[in-house]
């Protein structure tokens, strides 16, 4: 057999200090590295299109076909079930009048601003709850409870306390989203392997430096899950607030559009509003949170390609 670096030697001399050829060692090491290295190639765009984009598009098309068939079959009068074309007509009119983007922007800007405020409040609160035992004992159960309280319940008191204005909308969003963001961060921090914290401490990352360099990045997956849920809650709370508390001063958002449609007995407008609310919710998730989450998980090798 050829002379290998790992083959047993039977050298009896105690000064068996024949230095192993440094070059051979480097070569052996390079071989081991190459044999044992994991590669994670990115899936090609075409495959992503076929496997990820086509199925949901097909599902939407199917829903449209079934809907049209139901209309043709006359299962319900037009004022209860408008045709897809009637809803499309609403879209066109709103677009041509230039109000479509106004409706969307009124709600989206409110939702995003509220979400950012919830982020700014929920993050330090999460750090406090996770790291300070007394705060956790005091606030932990309360935050979990708040998370399961439908935020629409906050609309009546918010209207009474703050009146029919934007502050009331933001208050409702905060009450809906802050618990999710806080709980997400707390869960993320609780799931940090203790080894990372010990490694951080031996490297000298304690206190605020530990929080910044170790705790926050280690908790990021849980935190992101909390943010995602926080956005969903922000959006829901806002829609509830807009539907219940409509007032001419507030401008027309998607919630008001829906409520106006009901008042005008225009089912196609109601459908339009529902679709827009749904699409905005999906779009923000698809364009912001999902890529962010995938990027974080892929960087850590936690994304299993299915």
């Amino acid at each position: 057999m050829a002379d290998t670096d790992t083959g047993a030697r039977t050298d009896a001399s105690p000064a068996a200090g024949v230095p192993r050829d440094a070059h051979a060692l480097a070569g052996l090491e390079a071989g081991l590295d190459a044999l044992d290295t994991v590669r994670t190639p990115r899936t090609p765009l075409r495959e992503t299109l076929v496997r990820k984009v086509l199925p949901p598009v097909g599902a939407v098309a199917l829903v449209l076909v079934v809907w049209q068939l139901l209309v043709w079959a006359g299962v319900a009068p037009a004022y209860k079930l408008p045709a897809p074309s009637a809803v499309w007509g609403e879209v066109r009119v709103a677009w041509l009048e230039g109000t479509l983007l106004d409706y969307i922007w009124t709600s989206v800007s409110r939702g995003l601003l509220g979400f950012l405020m919830a982020l700014a409040l929920g993050t330090p609160l999460g750090l406090l709850v996770a790291r300070v035992r007394f705060v956790r004992a005091a606030l932990g159960p309360l935050l979990s409870g708040l998370q399961s309280l439908p935020s629409v319940a906050w609309v009546p008191p918010a209207v009474i306390w703050l009146g029919l204005n934007d502050s009331m909308m933001y208050a409702v969003i905060l009450l809906g989203a802050v618990p999710s963001i806080t709980n997400g961060l707390v869960a993320g921090i609780d799931q940090i392997p203790p080894l990372f914290l010990r490694a951080g401490r031996t490297l000298g990352a304690t206190g605020a430096r530990g929080a910044w360099h170790i705790v926050m990045p280690a908790a990021l997956p849980g935190y992101l899950a909390g943010l995602k849920q926080g956005w969903a809650f922000s959006w829901r709370s806002l829609m509830a607030a807009e539907i219940i508390a409509s007032s001419p001063d507030l401008g027309i958002g998607l919630g008001q559009l829906l409520e106006n449609g009901r008042n005008n007995s225009s089912m196609s407008q109601v459908f339009l509003a529902i679709f827009l609310i749904l699409i905005v919710g999906i779009a923000i998730d698809l364009l912001a949170f999902s890529p962010l989450e995938r990027w974080v998980l892929r960087g850590r090798g936690l994304l299993v390609t299915r």
Binding site: A30, D33, D36, T37, V38, T40, G299
Partner: peptide, 18 residues
């Protein structure tokens, strides 16, 4: 530690020895 060129590698892309 003879890992020149591995600066940009992610931890999960490395073998146990690396």
């Amino acid at each position: 530690v003879r890992l020149q060129g591995s600066y940009r590698k992610r931890v999960h892309e490395l073998s146990g020895g690396m």
